[in-house]
C-alpha cells in the first residue's frame, strides 16, 4: 500500500480511534486487496511504510462485499460499480480480503 496512504490511515486512526474507522477497499485485484487489508489490520508486511509493525486491527471490507454493497443505494452502485463487478474476479477478491480481516481485524 502507498506509503502516503498508510500515513493518512495511521493519522486518522489516532485522531478518531481505530474502533470508529472502517476501511473500504476498491482494489481491482485479489492479491493487492489482501495486501491492503493486511496492512490496515496487522501492519505493513513489506515493512516499508508507517504501518510497519503497527497492528491497527481496523474493520476492512472490499466495496464488492455484501456488507458494503447492501449499504449503497442500488442506483449509485449500478452507476459507479456494476460495470467493474462484471469485469473483476469478485470471489477471489472477497476471499482474499476476508482472509486477512478474519485473521487480524479487531473491530467489525
Amino acid at each position: 500500500m502507498d506509503l502516503e496512504n498508510q500515513a493518512r490511515i495511521k493519522e486518522l486512526a489516532e485522531k478518531h480511534g481505530p474502533e470508529n474507522l472502517v476501511v473500504i477497499l476498491g482494489g481491482a485485484e485479489a492479491e493487492s486487496s489482501g495486501l491492503a487489508c493486511e496492512t490496515v489490520t496487522n501492519g505493513d508486511p513489506t515493512y516499508a511504510g508507517p504501518l510497519a509493525g503497527v497492528q491497527l486491527g481496523l474493520a476492512c471490507y472490499h466495496v464488492l462485499e455484501s456488507e458494503i454493497k447492501d449499504e449503497i443505494e442500488p442506483e449509485v452502485y449500478d452507476e459507479q460499480i456494476s460495470m467493474m463487478e462484471m469485469v473483476l474476479e469478485v470471489e477471489e477478491i472477497i476471499a482474499e480480503t476476508k482472509k486477512y480481516r478474519e485473521m487480524y481485524a479487531k473491530y467489525q
Binding site: 481491482a28 485485484e29 492479491e31 493487492s32 495486501l35 456494476s82 460495470m83 467493474m84 462484471m86 469485469v87
Partner: peptide, 26 residues
C-alpha cells in the same frame, strides 16, 4: 507486482460497458 493484466482489464471494462448499454450480450 499486484497490478494485474492492465490491457486485458481495460478491454474487459470496454466490453462490460458495452453489455451494460446493450451493445453486447454478456
Amino acid at each position: 507486482a499486484g497490478a494485474g493484466n492492465v490491457p486485458e482489464a481495460n478491454y474487459k471494462m470496454i466490453a462490460a460497458l458495452g453489455v451494460k448499454r446493450g451493445d453486447l450480450e454478456k
